[in-house]
Simulated assay, not measured.
Amino acid sequence: MSQAPIELKGSSFTLSVVHLHHPEPETVRKALQDKVDQAPAFLKNAPVVLNVSTLDGDVNWQQMQQAIASTGLHIVGISGCKDDRLKRLIGRAGLPLLSEGKQQKKQEAAPIEEVKTVPAPSEATKTRLISTPVRSGQQIYAKNSDLIVTSSVSAGAELIADGNIHIYGTMRGRALAGASGDRQCQIFCSSLSAELVSIAGEYWIMDQIPADFFGKASRLCLQDGVLTIQKLY
């Protein structure tokens, strides 16, 4: 019997969720552009979900959509829409309205606009050391340096470094090494259970991490441009 031309299957993906808290498109564009400039290897051309729960129908949706697209982000869906007029505007734009069940809310990535950002190190700093647990919704960016976390990283938390990333506790969040494009960077985890790992824009979501390495001490790097994983010890 010949194989069917298509097959529909359920799957899950880790997406960044942008929570819009301002109705002015230009203000939103500038805030998003700052985020993209901080981590271009990860956010440039990234798919995102927009949460519009705090907006109403008075927003100029066409201008808002254009402002977000101008930063290079790709809108794949809208969540949290309660205003009927705004729903109609979004529908006319051809964007899907996403419903959020309880399980989906637990799996959503930390909102870009609401993360707690640890101040970036100075240019002379070679390593950023974090000795406290990194909580869900917290983002740490180690600019021009390596990042070492000696405690655990919760699901929904995000580590970004222009250099290498070392996690000595359990890693359940997202780790993005080589954020400025350095493809020689690596990620070292004592216990890898991450939602997403990325080196210079090459990434795996949780489902792509080989089962033999999940929850184990692991080292990730790029070989011939391909993300690879090895046992740490």
Rank of each mutant, 00 (worst) to 15 (best):
residue 21 H to Q: 10
residue 21 H to M: 03
residue 24 E to V: 03
residue 24 E to P: 03
residue 26 E to A: 06
residue 26 E to C: 00
residue 26 E to G: 02
residue 28 V to G: 11
residue 29 R to S: 11
residue 29 R to K: 15
residue 29 R to T: 02
residue 29 R to P: 09
residue 30 K to R: 15
residue 32 L to K: 00
residue 35 K to A: 09
residue 38 Q to C: 08
residue 39 A to F: 09
residue 39 A to Y: 06
residue 40 P to C: 09
residue 42 F to P: 00
residue 43 L to K: 06
residue 44 K to P: 01
residue 48 V to N: 05
residue 48 V to P: 09
residue 49 V to C: 11
residue 49 V to R: 01
residue 51 N to C: 10
residue 51 N to R: 03
residue 51 N to P: 10
residue 52 V to Y: 01
residue 53 S to H: 10
residue 55 L to H: 06
residue 55 L to S: 13
residue 56 D to Q: 02
residue 56 D to M: 00
residue 56 D to E: 01
residue 56 D to S: 07
residue 57 G to C: 05
residue 59 V to I: 12
residue 60 N to P: 06
residue 60 N to T: 05
residue 64 M to G: 13
residue 67 A to L: 04
residue 67 A to Y: 04
residue 68 I to L: 04
residue 69 A to E: 14
residue 70 S to E: 07
residue 71 T to I: 13
residue 72 G to E: 03
residue 73 L to T: 04
residue 74 H to M: 10
residue 76 V to I: 12
residue 77 G to W: 01
residue 77 G to V: 04
residue 77 G to Q: 04
residue 78 I to D: 08
residue 81 C to N: 13
residue 83 D to C: 08
residue 84 D to C: 07
residue 85 R to E: 07
residue 86 L to T: 05
residue 87 K to T: 05
residue 87 K to P: 02
residue 88 R to K: 15
residue 90 I to S: 12
residue 90 I to V: 14
residue 90 I to K: 09
residue 91 G to H: 11
residue 91 G to L: 04
residue 93 A to E: 12
residue 93 A to Q: 10
residue 94 G to Q: 07
residue 94 G to C: 06
residue 95 L to G: 05
residue 95 L to N: 05
residue 95 L to T: 05
residue 96 P to S: 03
residue 96 P to Y: 00
residue 97 L to S: 06
residue 97 L to D: 03
residue 98 L to F: 14
residue 99 S to I: 07
residue 103 Q to S: 05
residue 104 Q to I: 10
residue 104 Q to M: 09
residue 105 K to R: 13
residue 106 K to F: 09
residue 106 K to R: 08
residue 109 A to Y: 00
residue 110 A to R: 02
residue 110 A to L: 07
residue 111 P to H: 02
residue 111 P to N: 01
residue 111 P to R: 00
residue 112 I to M: 13
residue 115 V to R: 07
residue 116 K to I: 04
residue 117 T to V: 06
residue 117 T to I: 04
residue 117 T to C: 01
residue 118 V to R: 12
residue 119 P to T: 07
residue 120 A to Q: 09
residue 120 A to K: 03
residue 121 P to W: 04
residue 122 S to M: 08
residue 122 S to F: 09
residue 124 A to N: 15
residue 125 T to E: 13
residue 128 R to M: 15
residue 130 I to S: 10
residue 131 S to R: 14
residue 131 S to G: 09
residue 132 T to R: 11
residue 133 P to I: 03
residue 133 P to T: 13
